[in-house]
Design a binder for these strands. Structure first.
Ligand SMILES: [Zn+2]
Ligand SMILES: [Zn+2]
Length: 831
DNA sequence: AGCACGCCGACT
DNA sequence: GTCGGCGTGCTC
């Protein structure tokens, strides 16, 4: 073949690309790679592809091969969008693993993994950045053309850029312009997140060199007659050295100085003020500053972890509240950093407060990036790129930061590993970030996982007991802080008429009085108002249980029956309490608002705050409320699970758990584990620095084993008590669960479909399948729901084949006319 | 996810 | 008679 002939055979396709597009397709589709894109089409790059008649998507190339598809004509890739891959092989492998394990599609994983802006479409709008100036002569030819157009028009659609440039060059040029900050991708107001700003104090550049500073302090006339200002300046220099950047409010508080004194220094040009966002990275110097001493207990734990990680991939750090796990992580992170490796530090979303962020910034400055759902898409892309090119070494992030393109990952820390927010519930991919992180780490040469918790999940703890993970315990509170005294207020003693309907009983009220008298603060905890109506004995707190499933029964008002929401068995309603003979059951539930009202009546002089989902709906309301409370502008804080996380309240002397019985009767097989975790963490908020704190638990079941275990802080006993029950009733960690939710408009149809499915799995999974049952909330967005639960033995062979069987049966069911539109949602390892 | 195709009710 | 409701199926 001559050169001429080659030139005429451009439509001869030899290469094909398997592409993941952000859709719930059961398998990946294949597109043909035209000759002109052969060079550019690389695995991990985004490509623009047509699907159907008129849709265009940005997908990611997963695989390139030379096998022409047999059963269809592959369309050509329209364009390659990236000059270099946006994801590495390890991301593609993670996507595939998650899709298989959690029974969803790779497209769904991709949609969750990539920042929305990577899913660029031709309708995307570019906005000119007014701060970019007007001089674009430094840019390349094509970028120059687009920049000029942007300067003129202020906004351009991607299709319009396409008209300016040769169509194959659009995306590389646009990416370049975004990187140069000449334009950014338009975001609707709703998406935009204005980072929380704080005023920082900085030394004027004129005095950053030692000599000038020396002169200022000793001989300069500027400060000779302003002793207080000099004092403040010295204090500033001290804090700057020990803590790095310092905020205005912190400086004034710590130095005991006034606004006027600071203003004096600012006016004289010695210091200046600057508003900065705490969770943004660019201002902080890239330094490593781990200069604190570990306690002997911490040092020992650190050594043990190091030793274990030489042999095992995962180490569980079981450290009681306030034992100082974070300091240990900081040392481990430092080691990775010094080896040039990256570190992912996972935290539950609500623990990711500016307090937590600043604490790590103090040690790692600009090496740290933050990634969470409140970030705008533009910011996510920025962090994404910096992780990919290795300029960010540490990412402090919530669940979804697992998808970032790390290249040289040395360690993943998963703090509060028991936290339920690591599991994504809606929509797919319903993955568990902790478990997926362990898989992800295995893709790297030498990447270790450290799980940390004061109250480990039974899954992790039993893995540690079976030597699958290493286990290190830290049983000593840092600085030997006293553990709070845990008092149990027995509400059965107040059963006379005058106490009917009481929410805050005398012992708790009295303790609050005392705390307020001592000018200390109080936290009251109340569980989120459950939508689960149940029958609970008003006298002894007893709640009927399902004899098959060992969970609390729900009360169905309409049918006047008790029903198990796992297996669907119904029971007659209670008339007489089998535990105490009482006859009084139904009770109204109350939330934090009601408690807040009551407190206002009881303590009219106290300043009371409320922290729950509703009260902190705004962007920074959560941070703000924490700060207000920390500054002792509130006396009592009433809250739900939110008060449990990321708080470090010094002046709290009393924590009250208003309704322990409500917590203990939650209809979930993990109730006891959860209750212990919750109460243990709530207790941790009491008496952290100033004397012994008190925790008061109101309950009608003062001898409930979990309460005693909380009182003794005895996790091991809880574990030993609970595990036999898990085994007996077939629950994790002895089994693996898959929950199937069926959805349809017509109630009878879902019910029948679930029954059909149950029957169809009967022959092979008879002993493992529970249900069908109607969930408590049986209708969501006009769709009725039904559930089946699979309790599978822990053999990956059985689990894998069962997953296949389930998918096969879904397809089979959809062939049945009546069930065609029944949607089945599998949830693997529901939490 | 879209979008076309197709099958039934009520409207100029 | 046709218009438009949405349930169903398909997209490399
Ligand atoms: Zn009773
Ligand atoms: Zn049951």
């Amino acid at each position: 073949m001559t050169e001429n002939e080659i030139a005429y055979t451009t439509d001869l396709i030899t290469d094909y690309a398997e592409v993941v597009i952000p859709l719930a397709l059961p398998l990946n589709y294949t597109w043909a790679i035209p000759e002109r894109l052969k060079e550019a089409a690389v695995v991990g790059c985004r490509v623009e592809v047509n699907l159907g008649k008129s849709k265009r998507y940005a997908g990611v190339i997963k695989r390139i091969h030379k096998k022409p598809p047999e059963f269809f004509e592959a369309k050509e890739i329209v364009n390659v969008l990236d000059a270099e891959p946006v994801v590495f092989d390890s991301q593609l492998q993670l996507w595939e693993w998650i899709a298989k394990y959690y029974m969803c599609t790779e497209g769904e994983v991709m949609a969750a993994a990539l920042p929305a802006h990577f899913k660029l479409s031709s309708e995307t709008i570019l906005v000119f950045n007014e701060e970019a100036g007007e001089d674009f002569t430094e840019l390349g030819n094509e970028a120059f053309l687009v920049a000029e157009a942007l300067l003129l028009r202020k906004e351009l659609k991607l299709t319009e850029v396409q008209q300016i440039l040769d169509s194959t060059h659009v995306y590389p040029v646009v990416n370049y312009l975004i990187q140069q900050k000449i334009c950014y991708v338009w975001e609707s107001l709703k998406e935009r997140y204005s980072p929380k700003k704080e005023t920082y104090v900085l030394l004027s550049p004129a005095y950053t060199d030692e000599v000038a500073l020396e002169q200022l302090l000793n001989t300069d006339k500027k400060l000779q007659r302003a002793e207080k200002q000099l004092e403040l300046l010295l204090a500033y220099l001290h804090f700057q050295k020990t803590e790095g950047a310092i905020t205005k409010s912190a400086l004034l508080k710590k130095a005991g100085a006034t606004e006027a004194q600071l203003k004096g220094l600012v006016d004289k040009g010695v210091l200046f003020l600057e508003k900065r966002a705490v969770d943004r990275i660019r201002f902080l110097p890239k330094e490593i500053n781990v200069n604190f001493e570990l306690s002997p207990a911490q040092a020992k734990a650190l050594d043990e972890i190091r030793g274990i990680l030489k042999e095992k991939d995962v180490c569980l750090l079981h450290g009681i509240t306030s034992s100082g796990k974070t300091e240990i992580y900081i040392h481990l992170i430092e080691e990775q950093l010094r080896m040039g490796k990256q570190v992912l530090y996972l935290l539950p979303e609500i623990a990711l407060t500016s307090q937590t962020i600043r604490r790590l910034q103090r040690h790692f400055g600009g090496h740290i990036g933050v990634y969470h759902s409140r970030f705008s898409q533009n910011e996510r892309v920025e962090v994404w790129n910096k992780v990919k090119d290795g300029s960010l070494k540490i990412v402090l992030g919530a669940r979804s930061s697992l998808f970032l393109p790390f290249q040289e990952l040395g360690m993943i820390v998963c703090d509060e590993e028991h936290d339920t927010s690591y599991k994504q519930m809606e929509p797919a991919p319903r993955y568990h970030a902790r478990d997926a992180a362990i898989y992800f780490a295995s893709l790297f040469e030498d990447c270790k996982v450290v799980l940390g918790s004061a109250t480990p999940s039974f899954e992790s703890f039993s893995n540690a007991m079976h030597q699958k993970y290493g286990l290190v315990s830290l049983a000593e509170r840092f600085g030997n802080l006293a553990l709070p005294e845990i008092a149990i207020a027995d509400t059965r003693r107040y059963r006379t008429k005058e106490f009917a309907g009481t929410i805050l009983y005398p012992p708790l009220v009295e303790s609050i009085h005392r705390a307020l008298e001592h000018k200390t603060q109080v936290i009251l905890f109340q569980n989120r108002r459950g939508y689960t109506p149940y029958q609970r004995c008003n006298t002894c707190g007893w709640v009927p249980q399902c004899k098959h499933c060992n969970v609390s029964l729900n009360y169905h008002k309409f049918y006047n029956k008790l029903v198990c929401h796992y297996c669907g068995t119904t029971y007659p309603p209670l008339v007489t309490c089998p535990s105490c003979g009482g006859h009084d059951f139904v009770q109204k539930q109350f939330g934090t608002e009601r408690i807040e009202e009551l407190l206002q009546e009881l303590f009219p002089a106290a300043k009371i705050g409320r922290m729950d989902i509703d009260a902190v709906r705004g962007k920074h309301a959560h941070d703000q409320l924490i700060q207000t409370f920390e500054q002792q502008k509130l006396d009592i804080l009433v809250g739900t699970q939110m008060v449990v996380k990321g708080l470090d309240f010094e002046y709290v002397s009393l924590v009250g758990i208003v309704d322990a019985d409500g917590i203990l009767s939650f209809p979930d097989f993990r109730v006891n584990e959860r209750s212990f975790q919750l109460m243990e963490q709530v207790s941790g908020r009491a008496g952290r620095k100033h004397g012994t704190g008190q925790v008061m638990i109101q309950t009608a079941q003062p001898t409930h084993p979990v309460l005693l275990e909380v009182q003794q802080h005895d996790y091991q006993k809880l574990f030993n008590d609970e595990m036999p029950k898990r085994q007996q009733f077939g629950y994790p960690p002895y089994t693996r669960l898959i929950r199937l939710t069926f959805k349809n408009k017509i109630r009878e149809v879902v019910q029948d479909a679930a029954a059909w499915f149950f029957n169809s799995l009967q022959n092979r999974y008879k002993d493992f399948i529970v249900g069908p049952s109607e969930p408590v909330i049986n209708r969501v967005r006009n769709q009725y729901l039904m559930e089946l639960l699979l309790k599978l033995p822990r053999s990956s062979k059985i689990i894998d084949s069962c997953k296949k069987e389930v998918l096969y049966n879904i397809a089979l069911m959809h062939q049945e006319k009546r069930y065609r539109s029944v949607v089945v949602i599998p949830d693997v390892d529901p939490y």
